[in-house]
Simulated scan of single mutants.
Amino acid sequence: MNTPAPAVDYREVTVRLGHVDIVTDIHLSVGEGRFFGLIGPNGGGKSTILRCLYRALTPVTGAITLNGRDVAASSLRANARHVAALTQSSEMFLDFTVEDVVRTGRLPHTGLLRSTTTDDTWVCDQAMDEAGVGGLRGRLFSELSGGESQRVLIARAFAQQTPVLVLDEPTNHLDVRHQYAVLEAARNRGTTVIAALHDLNVAARFCTDLAVVAGGRVVRTGTPADVLTAASIGQWFGIGCHVVRHPRLSVPQIIFDEGLSP
């Protein structure tokens, strides 16, 4: 039986800024419906890998395919109908209400000239409820706390209703309850999720697959149990730890030691 093509496939992707290769020879295959986490030390290239998928950066070599089609062959708007992205920039929305921000997630489908339909309103209302910001709809985005702003941007990505969801550090500014709530909501959408995450325990809890990105390369891939070992964490993050099993979920959980790994 033939194995189906991955939802997202990176092949020999290199990104160069100026004369410096930021990521080199990236190979990643993300299956449909998987929750794929990118982890690794700061500056390793996680965000760069994600930015190529939603067309904010263009590789100098290699290709990225979405359901077998090269993303570079699509227009930005067409790509946005397939890939929604939570990025680390939100300044463009400062004068918008929360509801206005979330409605911009519908633009790849509606364009600028089409009036909002009942279906669009329902999609946006559902997205705000899933991200826990339904009660903020009339507030100005500029008046929100960092955590509230982050959840609004997550709602915007949900409202885009794409088969692939990219989350670049989605738990920034969020308290523990909201970290788990928004990632659970993302997982429950049934889409393919690719996320850059810093909290290794959160990554172990939600991700079906992990890739360690360090020095601009993918240095290890596998399930959380495969990747999150004391040896690999010491090697790539430079800190000692003990890895135990969650008593209910049986996923790895990390207890960090004081001081750095030898």
Rank of each mutant, 00 (worst) to 15 (best):
M1F: 11
T3Q: 10
P4K: 15
A7I: 12
V8H: 04
V8Y: 10
R11P: 00
V15E: 04
G18M: 02
D21Y: 06
I22V: 03
V23M: 02
I26R: 02
L28I: 12
V30F: 06
V30G: 04
G45E: 02
G45N: 03
S47L: 14
S47Y: 06
L50E: 12
R51T: 02
L53A: 10
A56C: 13
T58E: 10
G68R: 13
G68N: 07
R69I: 15
L76G: 02
A78E: 10
R81Q: 01
A85P: 00
T87V: 08
Q88L: 02
E91V: 06
M92G: 01
L94Y: 04
D95P: 06
T97V: 01
T97D: 01
V101M: 11
V102M: 01
R103E: 00
H109V: 04
G111C: 09
L112E: 06
R114Y: 14
S115F: 07
T118W: 12
W122I: 13
Q126Y: 06
M128L: 09
E130I: 04
V133F: 04
L140I: 10
L140A: 13
G146S: 04
L153N: 02
A155M: 15
A155N: 08
A159G: 03
Q160M: 10
P163C: 01
V166K: 05
V166L: 10
L167A: 07
D168M: 05
N172A: 05
N172L: 12
N172R: 07
R177K: 14
R189L: 07
T191H: 07
A195V: 11
D199W: 15
N201H: 03
V202I: 12
A204T: 02
R217C: 02
R217H: 05
G222K: 07
P224V: 14
V227Q: 08
A230D: 04
A230C: 01
S232Y: 02
I233H: 06
G234M: 15
C241T: 03
R248I: 02
P252C: 12
G259R: 13
